[in-house]
Amino acid sequence: MQPLFQQGTGPLARTLFFVLLSATLMVADHRFNQLEQVRGFLSGAIAPLRYAVDLPARFLGWGSDQVRSHGELVERINALERENLRLRARQLKFETLRSENERLRTLLDSSAERDDRVLVAELLSVALDPYRQQVVVNQGERDGVYAGQPLIDAYGVMGQIINTGPFTATALLISDPNHALPVQINRNGLRTIAEGTGEPDRLELRYIPNNADVRVGDLVVSSGLGGRFPPNYPVASVVEVERRPGQPFARVVAAPRAQLDRSREVLLVWPDDAGDGAVTGNGDLAAEEPAPAQDTDDTDASTRGEG
């Protein structure tokens, strides 16, 4: 007997048959869940095919995500590197500001126990050679700076003003060969003269007898004699004592306490007895109007004579 669909049935009969079969199956599945197992089996059977069909789209999406993610990561890394560079530059600036703040605090603390009026100044230029050791500060006559005014840093005496302008002033360092400063040994009060040698780490203490009580490590302070430097400011520490037989005086070398070749901020000091007076040609303090700034050579001579 031939199959049903091969007995001359037409297309319309076959269509009606499949429609009725489909409706029967849907009703059976909806009302009685009769095809649940069949659907699960068919779903499992076609899963590999569904995955294979979806694989190209998944691969293309993954590749696109990778390219986009790589580009975003590269861009983000570059942005982070630029930001890190900016932050490091700012950090360097903050470190500089922090160091400057610490120096200023130390500088101001060094004069906290003194009654002298002081003014913070910053170095504009430095000339350190064997024949001329001077610095220029950013304070001048309009700030009350006067010739002969003491200059110190956080550690000790640096020098004195020799020339003034409206906005700047030139100071001669204690290490200059033309500078001499009356000092005394802090331990025993022995008075002497500290002269510059042209080297920022070396002073010579003149006219000390061979039998004088001077020891390595002694602190040398300003004596206050000469009227320019106030007393008891640290000047130097003795580093070498050579007693020379047959010579009237010993050879004594001291190292300045001030950081002559490193300090950036300094203090201009108005001693109590100086007031607002100026230094005259012979080194005495005058109460009258400030004298005009002298020529450098003349001032050097006065500086060496009076300290």
Rank of each mutant, 00 (worst) to 15 (best):
L104Q: 00
L16W: 15
G156S: 11
F41S: 02
D176L: 03
P290K: 09
E141K: 05
D129A: 05
T197G: 08
G283A: 00
D284L: 13
P3Y: 05
I152Q: 05
V136E: 01
D65T: 13
P256H: 11
R187Y: 05
P231A: 10
Q149W: 04
T15G: 09
D129Y: 01
I77F: 13
I46S: 10
G63Y: 05
R50N: 04
V145D: 08
A194Q: 01
G63T: 08
S237N: 12
P234V: 10
A293I: 08
D276E: 04
W62F: 07
S302Y: 08
D218R: 04
P200Y: 00
F41D: 09
L35F: 09
R187H: 04
P177S: 02
D129L: 04
P130A: 07
D298W: 12
V266S: 01
R105A: 15
N211P: 01
L267Q: 13
A23D: 06
K93W: 09
L92F: 07
K93Q: 09
R68Q: 13
T15K: 04
R88G: 06
L42A: 12
A57F: 15
L35P: 00
S111E: 07
R228I: 10
A194C: 07
L219F: 00
P234Q: 07
L128I: 15
R142L: 04
Y155F: 14
H30E: 05
Q160Y: 08
E83T: 13
P230W: 10
G10H: 14
E81A: 14
A250K: 12
V239A: 10
